[in-house]
Design a protein around this nucleic acid. Structure first.
Length: 584
RNA sequence: GGCCCCGUAGCUCAAUCGGAUAGAGCACGGGAUUUCUAAUCCCGCGGUUGCAGGUUCGAGUCCUGCCGGGGUCACCA
């Protein structure tokens, strides 16, 4: 039997064949109305001069016998379906994942999704977690649409910030290693960076106290001078500096790897800016030769994007070294050289870089890169604290590892004590992450999230564990039933269905629609809200309608209904990258 | 100052191309466990959708102006 997409296509064809002047729009019937699907027939009503009988007749007749009831209210036709329609739906959903939990709408397409692109001078924080959750979820959603997805990470491993943490280590920590300090490598390097910033700030204040202007003091401070010469030594290929750079970056990668692994993130390809910035320089020179860019008197190279409303942008400094956008040009080019057939090259990057990404795409367009418009910036809002933005230098950062630990502990306390301690920890990790990931995904990506550490993330209500709990309930119920849900194919449909059953069936039926909307909109929040509503309805069903104690044919039907819910909620959890526990 | 994003219940968020009486969670008050896991369910309370106009059968949604918050416009990354 056809699922959402196929059914709507079928209907549309039927209406076309019936020569309807206007094809009705189909949507889900709101909960306060009787029905499953609603047809918007305002325009048709107009075309037929308000002849309601004719409207109903002409719209509903072509749809065949799946329709149990059709009611026209104020320009809407509410349709409900027969129990045997639902019986077929359940059987098909159990038989065929393709078309229900997996679609083939993006078959043959390939996407590259870049996230979370960290700097290598400090550990991951809450902002990176939002990035990681979004990137991973979007990757999975497109995979469900049938696309093949490349997960890539771009490591920002060069620049003045790295010099600062190197210097911090030399001045305050050498010859310690992360192991000596008993810290994860990324945390250790982060401590070096913070130590540098603290000493640097003190120097600046001293200089200002002696009468220097702040702008001068920031540049004149000895520590800053030293960091800059370290950067120059790095660019010149000084072997000693390179060795330290490599050692400290490896510490950070080791630390990142632990966190990535905990979150179940794996990359197909990792790009390093230390490798792509030279490619970028070549592209800039190429553009200069073609007259797309121009050189200023001091030797710096620029692009004039004022006609696009983006102003002027420096591409190479007067000393010939590269800026941030230079490396981005190189990386973008390399991506499409390696994978020319990408449908989209997605960048999961915060909205503070909206302008930067517009500039990047405009530059690539100018350079005649035909794939420039296949770049999609998945722009998301910052995660702020009630006091404002998180600032590493001020220590007001919610550390990713710490937060994961805290969520784990809180879930552990709530977890059933009737299991082994090992299992309890496994469950606690799943539930803790479920709560955290749902929290970060449930809001429209482009909106700012304000995270209040003192209030902490809920485990009840509109949360990840709510969905996980529904999954667990359904699984246990199915186990207790001890019956193949597909025995429904040998049983008749009940004569009537209760309102909670219809309500759950309606939401189940809409799964493919929401999967597609969430993927194409690059918006997991759509799926998060769908999954919550789905589970709310399942809980209502579970709480008010008996399954195991029901008589036939209701019992068999409800067991199948439970099994399809379990499939659907599993698809949602997987799409959101929220782990499904076996019990809670 | 220019450009971009946001503004919905006390708080956090929804609202399916412009559609029906703007819905959830938290908080607060009340109720449900001889029944498949109470991380659940049911009931109540809670709104001039920032303000003012405009477009139309219909506006939280689209247009114009204003107010408020954030971001950005670096030879930083």
């Amino acid at each position: 039997m056809p699922f959402w997409h196929a059914l709507l296509k079928q209907w549309e064809q039927a209406w076309r064949n019936a020569d309807l002047p206007v094809i009705p729009r189909v949507s889900l019937t709101p909960p306060d109305q009787q029905g499953i699907l609603t047809l918007n027939v305002f325009p048709l009503l107009k075309a037929y001069g308000g002849d309601t009988k004719r409207v109903i007749e002409s719209v509903v007749h072509p749809l065949g016998n799946a329709v149990k009831q059709a009611e026209l209210i104020k320009g809407f036709i509410n349709l409900s379906f027969t129990p045997s329609f639902w019986r077929e739906f359940l059987i098909s959903a159990l038989h065929e994942p393709l078309g229900y939990t997996h679609l083939d709408l993006a078959q043959g397409q390939r996407l590259m999704i870049e996230y979370p692109s960290p700097n290598t001078n400090k550990p991951l924080h809450l902002g990176h977690l939002r990035n990681l959750c979004l990137g991973e979820s979007v990757a999975r959603l497109w995979e469900r649409l049938g696309a093949s997805v490349l997960r890539v990470n771009l490591v920002n491993d060069r620049g003045i910030h790295i010099s600062k943490s190197m210097l911090g280590w030399k001045k305050f920590f050498a010859p310690q290693t992360p192991r000596d300090a008993g810290q994860k490598g990324d945390h250790f390097v982060g401590a070096c960076y913070v130590a540098f910033e603290k000493a640097y700030k003190a120097e600046v204040e001293t200089l200002i106290a002696r009468g220097m202007s702040e702008a001068d003091a920031l540049v004149q401070a000895p520590l800053f001078q030293e960091a800059q010469s370290l950067l120059q030594a790095w660019e010149a290929g000084d072997s000693e500096v390179l060795a330290l750079w490599k050692t400290m970056n490896d510490w950070v990668y080791e630390g990142f790897e632990v966190t990535f692994k905990r979150l179940g993130v794996k990359f197909d390809r990792v790009y390093y800016e230390s490798e792509t910035y030279t490619l970028g320089k070549a592209i800039v020179r190429e553009g200069l030769q073609q007259g797309i860019f121009y050189q200023a008197e001091d030797g710096s190279i620029w692009a004039d994007l004022t006609s696009e409303g983006l102003g002027r942008k420096v591409l190479l400094r007067r000393d010939g070294t590269s800026v941030y956008i230079t490396q981005d040009l190189g990386t973008a080019d390399l991506k499409f050289k390696e994978y020319p057939d990408l449908t989209y090259s997605v960048y999961v990057i915060g909205n503070e870089q909206d302008h930067h990404m517009k500039v990047l795409i405009a530059l690539l367009r100018r350079l005649g890169r035909p794939w420039a418009d296949r770049i999609y910036h998945l722009s998301y809002g910052m995660v702020e604290l009630p006091t404002g933005r998180m600032k590493t230098r001020e220590g007001s950062v919610v550390d990713a590892d710490d937060l994961l630990d805290e969520m784990h502990m809180r879930a552990y306390e709530l977890t059933d004590e009737g299991v082994s301690d090992t299992e309890r920890h496994t469950i606690a990790e799943m539930v803790g992450q479920g709560a955290l990931r749902f929290y970060l995904l449930r809001t429209d990506p482009k909106k700012t999230i304000v995270f209040d550490p003192t209030e902490s993330i809920d485990l009840k209500g509109f949360t990840g564990p709510f969905l996980q709990y529904g999954y667990v309930r359904a699984k246990r119920l199915q186990e207790k039933a001890g019956e193949d849900p597909l025995s429904l194919s040998k049983a008749p449909a009940p004569d009537t269905l209760s309102p909670p059953e219809e309500s759950l069936l309606q939401q189940l039926f809409a799964l493919p629609y929401f999967l597609e909307s969430a993927a194409r909109g690059f918006d997991p929040a759509i799926l998060a809200h769908y999954g919550y509503e789905l589970t709310r309805r399942f809980n209502e069903f579970y709480q008010t309608v008996p399954v195991l104690a029901a008589s036939e044919p209701e019992r068999t039907f409800r067991i199948a209904l439970t099994a399809v819910y379990r499939r659907a909620i599993l698809a949602v959890l997987e799409g959101l990258a929220i782990p499904p526990p076996e019990r809670m």
